[in-house]
Lab assay of single mutants.
Amino acid sequence: PAHPYDRLKTTSTDPVSDIDVTRREAYLSSEEFKEKFGMTKEAFYKLPKWKQNKFKMAVQLF
Score class of each variant (00 low, 15 high):
37 F>M: 06
42 E>C: 11
1 P>W: 04
6 D>I: 00
20 D>W: 01
61 L>R: 06
2 A>Q: 15
10 T>H: 06
35 E>V: 09
24 R>H: 08
34 K>W: 14
5 Y>T: 05
25 E>Y: 04
21 V>T: 11
7 R>K: 11
38 G>L: 09
10 T>Q: 06
20 D>N: 10
12 S>G: 06
55 F>W: 12
35 E>D: 12
61 L>T: 01
32 E>N: 05
41 K>L: 11
29 S>W: 04
35 E>K: 06
43 A>V: 13
47 L>Y: 03
9 K>A: 05
48 P>W: 00
32 E>S: 05
7 R>W: 08
20 D>L: 02
2 A>M: 15
17 S>Q: 14
47 L>I: 01
15 P>M: 05
3 H>N: 06
27 Y>Q: 06
61 L>F: 10
15 P>I: 07
1 P>R: 11
3 H>K: 03
18 D>N: 13
54 K>M: 14
11 T>H: 06
5 Y>A: 07
46 K>H: 13
18 D>M: 07
7 R>A: 08
46 K>V: 10
16 V>P: 07
34 K>E: 14
62 F>L: 15
31 E>I: 08
15 P>R: 04
17 S>W: 13
50 W>N: 02
39 M>F: 03
26 A>R: 06
13 T>R: 11
29 S>D: 11
11 T>K: 03
43 A>K: 12
49 K>W: 09
4 P>Q: 08
7 R>L: 07
24 R>K: 08
6 D>S: 01
29 S>L: 02
53 N>R: 10
16 V>A: 08
30 S>T: 14
35 E>H: 09
15 P>G: 07
29 S>I: 02
10 T>S: 06
27 Y>A: 06
29 S>N: 09
60 Q>T: 06
46 K>W: 05
26 A>G: 04
34 K>P: 02
43 A>E: 15
51 K>T: 11
40 T>E: 09
25 E>M: 04
16 V>C: 09
56 K>Y: 04
22 T>E: 08
59 V>W: 12
44 F>L: 00
30 S>K: 12
7 R>Y: 04
16 V>W: 03
7 R>M: 05
4 P>K: 08
13 T>E: 13
44 F>M: 01
55 F>V: 11
9 K>N: 09
22 T>R: 08
17 S>D: 12
18 D>V: 05
61 L>E: 05
19 I>N: 07
1 P>V: 13
3 H>E: 07
10 T>N: 14
6 D>A: 00
53 N>P: 00
20 D>H: 07
37 F>I: 02
6 D>L: 00
54 K>L: 15
37 F>L: 10
58 A>G: 04
52 Q>P: 00
26 A>P: 03
1 P>A: 11
1 P>Y: 11
32 E>T: 02
44 F>I: 00
33 F>W: 01
57 M>A: 08
4 P>C: 14
19 I>K: 03
2 A>V: 15
25 E>P: 03
47 L>W: 03
40 T>S: 13
52 Q>V: 01
7 R>I: 11
19 I>G: 05
41 K>Y: 08
15 P>N: 04
10 T>I: 13
5 Y>V: 06
35 E>Y: 08
1 P>G: 12
55 F>I: 11
52 Q>W: 01
20 D>M: 06
12 S>C: 13
38 G>P: 02
5 Y>Q: 10
12 S>F: 06
1 P>L: 12
19 I>D: 03
24 R>P: 08
22 T>V: 06
28 L>I: 03
18 D>E: 09
29 S>M: 02
33 F>Y: 02
34 K>F: 15
22 T>D: 10
7 R>F: 06
41 K>C: 09
25 E>S: 03
49 K>M: 12
41 K>T: 10
25 E>V: 07
15 P>L: 07
3 H>D: 06
42 E>R: 06
41 K>H: 08
13 T>S: 11
20 D>G: 11
41 K>P: 07
31 E>R: 07
42 E>A: 11
54 K>W: 14
6 D>W: 09
40 T>F: 03
9 K>Q: 10
35 E>P: 01
2 A>L: 15
46 K>M: 14
51 K>F: 12
45 Y>I: 03
60 Q>D: 15
31 E>T: 14
14 D>M: 11
14 D>E: 08
58 A>Q: 13
49 K>A: 09
45 Y>D: 05
57 M>N: 08
43 A>Q: 14
26 A>F: 11
16 V>H: 04
5 Y>I: 11
48 P>Q: 01
2 A>C: 15
45 Y>A: 06
49 K>S: 09
2 A>N: 15
60 Q>I: 07
27 Y>T: 04
27 Y>K: 05
30 S>G: 11
21 V>H: 09
31 E>S: 14
38 G>Y: 05
3 H>G: 04
23 R>P: 04
36 K>F: 13
11 T>E: 07
30 S>N: 14
33 F>H: 00
61 L>K: 05
30 S>H: 13
53 N>C: 12
55 F>D: 01
56 K>F: 06
46 K>S: 13
36 K>A: 08
29 S>Y: 03
28 L>H: 03
62 F>K: 14
42 E>V: 09
15 P>Q: 06
51 K>I: 14
43 A>H: 10
56 K>N: 03
13 T>C: 15
36 K>G: 01
62 F>D: 15
28 L>M: 09
50 W>I: 02
42 E>F: 07
53 N>F: 10
14 D>C: 13
51 K>L: 15
